[in-house]
Structures are given as C-alpha cells and as structure tokens.
C-alpha cells in the first residue's frame, strides 16, 4: 500500500519536473502560431525561421562567447583561490572565503543594479565584456565550491612526492595536480557555462545593444507570432544542455574509473 503511494508520488514528481519542458519540443514542431491543444500539424518551419533571424544568431553567438569566457575566467580564479584556501593557513582566510561565496546568495537584481551603477560611474560602455564581468562574479562561487572539494580530496603527499622527485612547483601542477583535479575543473567549466548561458537579470542590466540569448528571447515574447520560434530555439537549447550534461557525466565516470575511485553515483 505505502509502496504504491510512493510510486505514485515519484511519477507525479517526475511529471511535475519534466512535463513543462516536454511541451517545448511538442509546440516547436506544431504547425500553428497558437500555443494550444489540439495540435494542428507537423512542421519544421519554426526551426527554419531561426536560420533567417540575424538578431537571434547574434544573440546566440554573444551568449556562447560570454558563457565560454566567464566559465574559463571563473574556473581559473577558483583554481587559484581553492588551492590557496585548502592548503595554506593565513590570517583572514575565513572572511575571504565568505566574501567570495556571498554572491551565490545575493539576489541577482542587487548585483545587476550595483554593477550597472559601477560601470556607468566608471564611464564604461555597456558591452558583452560588462556581462562577462557580472557572470564571472556569480559563477566564481560555484566553481570554488566544486574545486575546493577537489583539492580537499587530493592527498597532499601526491604533490610533495612530485616535488621530492625533482619537479618544480609549476610542473608539479601540470603533471600531477591538474590531472588529478581534472574532473572538478570540467565540472566547474560546465556549471559556470550553464549558469552564464541562461542567466537573465544581470545580462539584462548590463547588455546595452548586444543582447544575450535569454534577453533576446524575453524581447521576442512580446510578439505572439514569434512564440513558436522561441519554442524551437528552446528545444535546441534543451538538446544542447542534455548533450553537455551527458558528456560531463561520461567524463566524470571515466576519470573516476581511471583513478580507481569508487563511483558514488551522483554528478554534483
């Protein structure tokens, strides 16, 4: 009896999570500008229309550039901060970690408004670089959370052994540290990339004349005619996310197996 309730609960839970997402591909292939059942026919038109939308292509490229650069910058900063805070003791360390992690909990609208103020006061033009700045700020705490745990799992005698065998600090990082924390680095890159890709509020404040994909999508929602195209675009993004997630999971499992670690199932 209670087992059946649990089963029903699980099915409802999964439906609640994924059913709205599944509507996306359904209406993306529906031959009607109205988002309503019953479906009227099958078409590829909405996908074809994406090819012709120059603005959309520009926004997509902006988003990809911003997400890539933010992910790399956040991960690099997090590498430095994690290796320092995990391995060394120094005054003010706790406060520093706290200060770095705070943007994770600050409302994005607060970050967006304050960054906009700073950028305008400093006399900069709004551009994709200002968005990269904002995204790096919000991605870095996530990257640090991931990489700190990678460094904590790393046996410090691994690096000492490398030094002891004659390698310099830099080549120790390249030959031992980096390969051993690589799963963490990949996770960090993917998480930061994903966060930046779908972030709206900060991008909206800082975007100026070059919108990111979410900002562009938002602007299109005002035109009901365009909604099916947005659905098609959403479907493509959904596919991309699934591919990225699958890739990262495959990579994580492979490296866990290679390092002889026990597979603990979950990704992050």
């Amino acid at each position: 009896m209670s087992k059946r309730i649990l089963t029903i609960f699980m099915v409802v839970f999964v439906l609640f999570l994924y059913a709205p997402t599944l509507l996306l591909p359904i209406f993306a292939f529906n031959d009607s500008t109205f988002i309503a059942f019953p479906l009227s026919g099958f078409t590829f038109d909405w996908f074809a229309s994406l090819g012709a939308a120059v603005e959309l292509r520009g926004a997509a490229i902006n988003s990809l550039i911003i997400a890539s650069i933010s992910a790399v910058t956040a991960t690099t900063l997090a590498l430095l901060a994690s290796s320092a805070t995990v391995r060394y003791r120094f005054p003010g360390k706790g406060i520093m970690i706290g200060a770095i992690m705070v943007p994770m909990f600050l409302p994005e609208i607060v970050i967006g408004v304050s960054l906009l103020t700073v950028v305008l006061l400093a006399g900069f033009q709004l551009s994709i670089y200002t968005i990269i700045m904002g995204h790096t700020l919000i991605c870095t705490p996530f990257s640090i959370a991931i990489l700190r745990s990678s460094f904590q799992q790393l046996d410090p005698s691994m690096e000492e052994a490398s030094l002891d065998l004659g390698e310099s600090r830099f080549s120790t990082f390249r030959r031992v540290t980096l390969p051993l924390i690589m799963p963490g680095v990949i996770s960090s890159l993917l998480i930061a990339f994903t966060i930046s890709l779908d972030e709206f509020v900060i991008a909206f404040f800082l975007s100026g004349t070059e919108p990111t994909l979410p900002v562009y999508i938002w602007s299109q929602l005002r035109f009901p005619r365009k909604i099916p195209s947005v659905m098609a675009l959403g479907t493509l993004l959904l596919l991309l996310s699934i591919c990225l997630l699958t890739l990262s999971e495959i990579f994580r499992r492979r490296s866990a197996r290679r390092l002889g670690q026990k597979d603990n199932g979950g990704a992050w």
Binding site: D155, A161, L163, D164, V176, L180, R258, L259
Partner: peptide, 28 residues
Amino acid sequence: PNKRPTNMVFQSYAIFPHMNVAQNVAYG
C-alpha cells in the same frame, strides 16, 4: 625539496593514480 639529494617514500606511498607503474617509476 626538488633540489635536495634526498628522496622519500611516503606513508601513503603517494603513487600517482593517473599513471601506470612504469610511468610512476619514470616520473623523476
């Protein structure tokens, strides 16, 4: 440490897990 004429066997052995035995031995 990398400039000292000493080498160490660590308590945990610190065998590099991403390398095979020969690569470990050839490391230095």
